[in-house]
Design a protein around this nucleic acid. Structure first.
Length: 510
RNA sequence: GCGGCCGUAGUCUAGCCUGGACAGGAUGCCGGCCCUCCAAGCCGGAGACCCGGGUUCAAAUCCCGGCGGCCGCACCA
């Protein structure tokens, strides 16, 4: 018996949501790169536009777009270079891996900087001091291997040495452009930027379809705020949400896996969620994933990261995770309080002052950064996982109606008696009204319904003989297979109401 | 990147051990027939041995290497 995961991957490939890049033609294409087919791309666009409509615009966030390629200097400042080029050795006996500098520092108790040393001197240090594998006690190390998790490139004709890299996160673009954006938009703190962008990580082992890729897409918001006054603006916005229950896996519940429900108020009062700004964003992201993207609350949690798991820049860090039986808990959103780590790094490396004026004009402020970062591809994959249904008879995707890549199927019941012509007219009308419609007259009517079910099309309109007599058509619901009959003139209005709500189809009857 | 298992049409699979003729089937897909509402039936069609090298008169089959997939470890900034 195959799991849902395999079925979703099959369905996605078969019906054109996504598939691995280049494989059909060039064997041996590297893993971790995916093509979005027409259906997947449309879903992606719908999710992006939902995020814009529900988060970016109402929250007054300024969306910008920065290049994928940035100079290495940027990543020196951000700390990525240091953390991306870890030097590791592996124990030949038990295959455990260790960072060379950590190993030496811990075993010899020295704290001096080992960064300047060559690989040979580091190895010599290990063998001279007979540093054994902390796990199995063997003294049999591999050569030092470098982990280069960024894609570095050489920009310009005369350069051989890498001088730039594909960005591993969109954040640095926003940080580097923060001050400029703040100025041109006549900003006040807190000041929020957003980016939709592709990012690149040379993962050691890309796996699980869209879950771990080497090129993927992030939807990030970067909120720069005055650490001495983070709450002013958020006081009012948070007020009506204070009783909203956030779901946390706290660090102390890690062992038991117990999820604690904590109202926004409790989070604030106990200091767990730090300040109003962060609390507010935790609330609206949980709400967005639950209410807009349609993930059930019981499948969602904020997992508090502990030391060692947290990114090098983060003071506090929660992953918004989703649960499926096949994949367990998977991170969808990385919510990090990065303090002024990034801005001060860029100040140091570039020598430029990146601080701005406080709102009352009395202080210079180096803002802190809070960043919720959505892994878009994982969201799409989980929409499919959570929506997948089968009952032995039928396979269908119970997607939120407004996220379905095809919104309405239009069919003639039979391919004669003028039914196809009438159906095409209706199809054209719906297209003109802005619906994503799909016309199909091949095979039997049942087969066409099933095909639409399989890609999650919420409603199908069928033209039959009665249509020719009284200008009514049937509307058929994907989830219940129930049908109602409506006048063609009312069709756009009915479909629109159906797509943008959860009402049962029967309620559309006048 | 390490270890284990694995790689035949979109998907599932027969053949591989024991080398031999156009690689067989199911489903899906495309065209047609039939058809008054949920993958019916009939006719026709396109579609595959992961890649490279080796052994051999002959390789889907045996050997080596690479790539990819799953699981575990590590990694996930």
């Amino acid at each position: 018996m195959k799991g849902i995961y395999d079925k979703v991957v099959d369905l996605a490939t078969r019906r054109g949501f996504f598939w691995p890049s280049s494989r059909d033609i060039y064997a041996g294409a590297p893993a971790g790169f995916y093509v979005y087919g027409p259906l997947g791309l449309r879903m992606k666009e719908k999710i992006v536009s939902l995020w814009r409509r529900k988060i970016i615009i109402p929250e007054g966030v300024h969306e910008i777009e920065t290049p994928n390629v940035l100079p290495l200097k940027v990543f020196e400042a951000s700390g990525h270079l240091e953390h991306f080029f870890d030097k590791l050795v592996e124990c030949r006996r038990c295959h455990s891996r260790f960072r060379v500098d950590k190993l030496i520092e811990e075993e010899l108790g020295i704290t001096e900087n080992l960064e300047g040393l060559s690989d040979d001197s580091l190895l010599k240090l290990i063998y001279d001091n007979e540093i054994k594998c902390p796990k199995c006690g063997a003294l049999n190390w591999t050569d030092i291997k470098k982990f280069n998790l960024m894609f570095t490139i050489s920009v310009g004709a005369e350069t051989d040495e890498p001088n730039a890299a594909l960005r591993p996160e969109t954040t640095q673009g926003s940080v580097v452009e923060f001050r400029k954006s703040f100025m041109v938009m006549r900003g006040k703190l807190p000041f929020a930027l957003a980016q939709i962008g592709r990012v690149f990580r040379n993962e050691i082992s890309p796996r699980r379809a869209l879950i771990r890729m080497r090129e993927f897409q992030q939807l990030e918001v970067h909120i720069f705020f005055d650490p001495e006054d983070p709450d002013e603006v958020y006081e009012d916005r948070l007020e009506p949400l204070l009783d909203y229950k956030l779901r946390f896996l706290r660090r102390e519940d890690r062992e038991t896996g117990k999820i604690v429900e904590m109202t926004a108020r409790e989070g604030l009062e106990t200091g767990y969620t730090i300040n109003k700004l962060i609390t507010y964003w935790l609330v609206i992201y949980q709400k967005f994933f639950n209410e807009a993207l349609g993930f059930p609350l019981e499948r969602l949690r904020y997992r508090e990261l502990i030391e060692g798991e947290k990114a090098h820049y983060a003071l506090a860090h929660w992953d918004l995770e989703i649960y499926t039986d096949d994949l367990g808990w998977v991170e969808l959103v990385n919510n990090a309080y990065r303090t002024d780590y990034d801005l001060s790094g860029h100040m140091k490396v570039s020598g430029n002052d990146l601080s701005v004026q406080s709102n009352d004009g009395t202080r210079k402020v180096l803002p802190h950064l809070y960043e919720p970062s959505i892994g878009l591809d994982r969201v799409i994959f989980h929409e499919l996982m959570v929506a997948y249904r089968e009952d032995g008879e039928r396979t269908w995707l119970q997607l939120p109606r407004y996220l379905a890549p095809v919104e309405v199927g239009v069919f003639p019941l039979l391919r004669r008696d003028g039914l196809p012509e009438r159906a095409r007219e209706i199809y054209n009308e719906l297209i003109e009204k802005g619906f994503i419609a799909f016309y199909d007259e091949s095979g039997s009517i049942g087969r066409r319904y099933r095909r639409m079910d399989e890609i999650g099309t919420p409603v199908c309109v069928t033209v039959d003989h009665q249509t020719l007599e009284d200008n009514t058509v049937t509307m058929r619901d994907r989830d219940t297979m129930k049908q109602i009959r409506v006048p063609i003139t009312r069709l756009p209005e009915k479909i629109s109401r159906f797509l943008n709500s959860n009402v049962p189809i029967e309620e559309l009857i006048d």
